[in-house]
Computed example of a mutant assay.
Amino acid sequence: MASSIYTRTGDDGTTGLFHGGRVSKADAIVDAYGAVDELTAVLGVARAGCPDAALAADLLALQRELFVLGADLATHPERRSKLEDGVSRVSPAMVAALEARIDAELVVRPLRPVFLVPGSNPTEAALDLARTVARRAERLAVAAADGGAHVSQDARHYLNRLSDLLFVLGRRAAGEEEPASRA
């Protein structure tokens, strides 16, 4: 018998948490990890059109890390002891690695002191869209935490650094062809 994608368990408006339990599909934490899922997809769009093999590999690595972040956010709060750093829980090392990547990118391509208009090429445009989705995911995670959901400091820090990394990767993808917000 073929497996089915539908289970009917969500027909009541709830969704399952990682390691058990159910919450409303309208729960703030579901919004947060839903935005992380959306971010993973947007990075897939950036990667699919990326002519730079090294950058495409970086984006795939980030997509894989987002599964770790998603698991961290979607875990039943009482079952977090089952999580494993770097596999299902964001670790301080993951945050430090993002910081090192940002620093390395900025050595190669320092920031310009102007606002930049997205859309220099499809990869850069997708990376700037990904940056905005990362910022929304961060806001939603903070709102979920403010509402009582468990959101680790490492997950918050990761989201904050990730949007910065996506900004500098967008600059890398754009090359020298980025228009400033003012002529």
Rank of each mutant, 00 (worst) to 15 (best):
L166F: 02
G21S: 11
A143W: 06
E38A: 06
S120M: 08
R80I: 10
R112T: 10
A104D: 09
Q153K: 09
A71D: 03
P118H: 04
R161S: 10
E65Q: 13
N121W: 00
G49S: 00
V23D: 11
A53P: 06
V142Q: 06
D58F: 06
V45G: 04
R47E: 01
A74Y: 13
V30D: 01
L106G: 08
L39D: 09
A96H: 11
V133Q: 04
P118S: 14
D154V: 03
S120D: 09
G148K: 09
S181Y: 14
R156N: 09
R79S: 14
D128F: 11
L159D: 06
A174W: 02
P77E: 12
D164G: 10
G148H: 07
L159V: 02
F67R: 04
R109G: 13
A125E: 02
V87E: 05
R156H: 13
A26V: 04
A46C: 08
D37I: 01
P51R: 01
V108P: 02
D72M: 07
T75Y: 14
L66H: 05
R161W: 15
S181H: 15
R109W: 00
K25S: 09
L17N: 13
A96Q: 04
A130P: 02
T75V: 13
L116A: 08
R64F: 10
R131L: 04
N121C: 07
Y33P: 00
